[in-house]
Design a protein around this nucleic acid. Structure first.
Lengths: 219, 219
DNA sequence: CAAAGTGCCCAGTCACACCGAGGAAAATTA
DNA sequence: TAATTTTCCTCGGTGTGACTGGGCACTTTG
């Protein structure tokens, strides 16, 4: 049984390695996202290495083993299934679920997750548009593009968000940019990379680069 | 925020003090139900005393403070609400839920519990017939009698179980003695206190004292 | 009042997670 | 390639939470 902290480390390492495939994950980077010191990270990496959950060679960065990857994906699976539950069944808003799911993802009952999955109708995506890994760790990599990569004239449907912070999600709600919204890029300001967009063939707004870098669309 | 272990101690102390009202709860008894050593209990009692969760005076036994009682009741509330969820929504059998709920009862989000309560339709009883405390700690003491206290000729409806162990619950399922079953006591064997009963105006069975001491009925 | 039973206290263990400092290794730059 | 910077490992140590055996203090009971 991995501890809560171990699950958090593995999840963070998995996400970092997905963000930059091929590149080994660095100690400092892990410390940064987990809000801790590099010395603590080294400590944990050694322990996770001894447990066979990751390949750890000093100064060489780190990569997950098959087992470590499995634990990380199962943790993500639990997190996202609980998010779906909170939003679809308990009526939470998508900006309220992260912290609660962060706690629920550490529950350790495979049977519970199987029954929950069934109860929710085997959802494929969580409320932020992220794919839910299967029980065996299979995960579908969605075909998304960042809004910041769109050129004027291009359009797409909002499919997912990269950032799940409360202020960001609340901004999207207020701007009418929830999942499913249709976006058309009208113009790009080269100075700060902000975009002028039309939302749902209707309102025209300006969104900053900060926003467009955290929003995914598909055709 | 109380730790998982603290919640477990408080819950155990609450249940012990309910079982024998008026009597102070003893260190040895707590050690027994929590499967630990008296020395560990003393240790924890001192800490819980310092936190103001119980009245702890050496050699004097222990009783919960208002705060301690509140934590205990909230923990029980969480446990029982999750049990209802598992049975009513996820399709668990009543003999499968205890261990899972034991883990879920330590989740710390009042908002979650409020929304769950609403989602479940504000249930008053858990799947074993035990009352669910309100958010403010109010709890209805059910008017039950033990089947072992019934005299020949008396009858009643099965309302709750005292014991929630897997073998006991499975036995009840097999015997047709689930909640709601109608029982009529036909005869009592004075030698071992076993009872001859008729179930749902139908089958006649013999149940041991061990069983009848763990089964509650009401008229 | 003495014996039996109960429970406290002490000192220590163990696991987990964290951390600062200093120096070793690697990467970068000159 | 040498010097500098950056990364990060190692070491020793901290703190917390929970548990424990053994000896002794207290309480209860006969």
């Amino acid at each position: 049984m991995p501890s809560h902290t171990e699950e958090n480390y593995l999840k963070a390492i998995y996400k970092l390695s997905e963000a930059q495939p091929g590149v080994e994950v660095s100690t400092n980077r892990i410390a940064e996202v987990l809000q801790t010191r590099p010395a603590s990270v080294t400590d944990m990496l050694r322990r996770l290495g001894e447990k066979g959950l990751l390949h750890y060679e000093r100064y060489r960065g780190v990569s997950l083993t098959h087992d470590g990857r499995r634990v990380a994906l199962l943790t993500i699976r639990k997190h996202r299934l609980w998010e779906v539950f909170l939003v679809n069944k308990l009526g939470f808003n998508w900006d309220e679920v992260h912290d609660v799911a962060e706690e629920m993802e550490h529950l350790q009952s495979p049977l519970l997750m199987r029954r929950l999955d069934e109860f929710l109708g085997f959802p494929q995506l969580d409320p932020h548009g992220d794919p839910i890994p299967a029980e065996d760790g299979a995960i579908i990599r969605p075909q998304h593009r960042l809004v910041s990569d769109l050129k004027p004239g291009e359009e797409g449907t909002v499919m997912a968000v990269k950032n799940t912070s409360v202020p960001f999600l609340q901004y999207l709600d207020k701007a009418g940019l929830s999942l499913g919204a249709r976006i058309e890029v009208l113009d790009k300001v080269t100075f700060d990379n902000s975009l002028e967009i039309r939302i749902n063939n209707n309102k025209v707004t300006l969104i900053s680069n900060e926003i467009s870098c955290n929003l995914f669309v598909a055709d």
